[in-house]
Simulated scan of single mutants.
Amino acid sequence: MERVNKFLEAKSEEGEQIREVRVIPLTLTNPVTPEFASTMTAGQFFIEVLKERGISIENKDVLVVTSKLVSLFDGRTIKLKDVIPSRKARILGKFFHKDPREVELIMREGKVKFVIPFKKIAKHPILWKKMLKFSADPEGTREALDISTYVFVVRNHAAYLDDAGIDFSNSPSEYVTLLPKDPCKSAQKIREEIKQLTGKDIAVIITDTVSELGRMGSQDIAIGYSGIDPITRKSGKRDLFGEPHLGGNDMVIDSLAGMAGLVMGQMDESTPATLIKGLRYDSEKPDKDYKGMELVDYPPGLTVRSTFLTFLTTLWFYIVNFFTFQRWPRKR
Rank of each mutant, 00 (worst) to 15 (best):
D239F: 10
R215A: 15
L213K: 11
V252R: 07
L275R: 02
T313F: 09
I190T: 06
L178Q: 04
G301T: 01
Y281E: 03
A257S: 14
I194K: 05
D208R: 07
P244E: 13
M251N: 15
L197T: 02
S186V: 08
E193I: 06
T271M: 04
G217D: 08
Y298S: 13
D220V: 04
S226V: 08
P299V: 04
T303G: 03
Y298M: 15
M216T: 12
R215V: 13
G248K: 09
D201Y: 01
D239M: 09
D250G: 13
M251F: 09
R191I: 06
V210K: 00
K291N: 06
L279I: 11
T232K: 09
D254F: 07
M293W: 01
K285P: 05
V263C: 00
Q219R: 15
Q196A: 15
D229N: 14
K237V: 14
A273R: 00
T303H: 07
L179W: 00
I206M: 11
T207N: 08
I276S: 00
A187P: 05
I276G: 03
G247C: 10
I190S: 07
M216E: 15
L240P: 06
I223G: 02
S211Q: 13
L275Y: 03
T313V: 10
R305K: 07
S226A: 15
R215W: 09
L197N: 14
G301H: 02
H245Y: 15
G236W: 10
P286R: 11
S235C: 08
I221W: 01
I202N: 01
K237H: 10
M267T: 10
I194P: 03
K277A: 05
T177E: 03
M216K: 06
S226P: 02
D208W: 01
I253N: 10
V252L: 10
L262T: 04
R191K: 15
H245G: 15
F308V: 06
P180N: 07
D297G: 04
T313A: 13
Y225W: 12
R233M: 14
K277M: 04
V304G: 02
D289C: 05
Y281N: 08
E269A: 07
G278D: 00
G301I: 02
T313R: 14
D208G: 09
T310N: 12
K189V: 05
D229P: 01
I253G: 08
E243K: 12
K288C: 08
A222M: 08
E284M: 06
I221M: 06
T274Q: 00
A222I: 05
Q266A: 14
P180A: 10
S211D: 12
A260C: 04
T313I: 09
T310K: 12
C184V: 10
K288Q: 10
L309W: 08
G227P: 01
P300C: 03
T271W: 01
M259F: 07
A257W: 03
E243A: 12
M216P: 04
V263L: 02
K181N: 11
G227N: 02
G199F: 07
I205D: 03
T207V: 05
Q188K: 13
L213A: 14
V304S: 07
S283Y: 05
G242C: 12
L262D: 02
M251P: 14
G301F: 02
I228E: 02
E212R: 15
K277P: 01
D201L: 05
A187I: 06
T271Q: 01
S306V: 13
V210H: 05
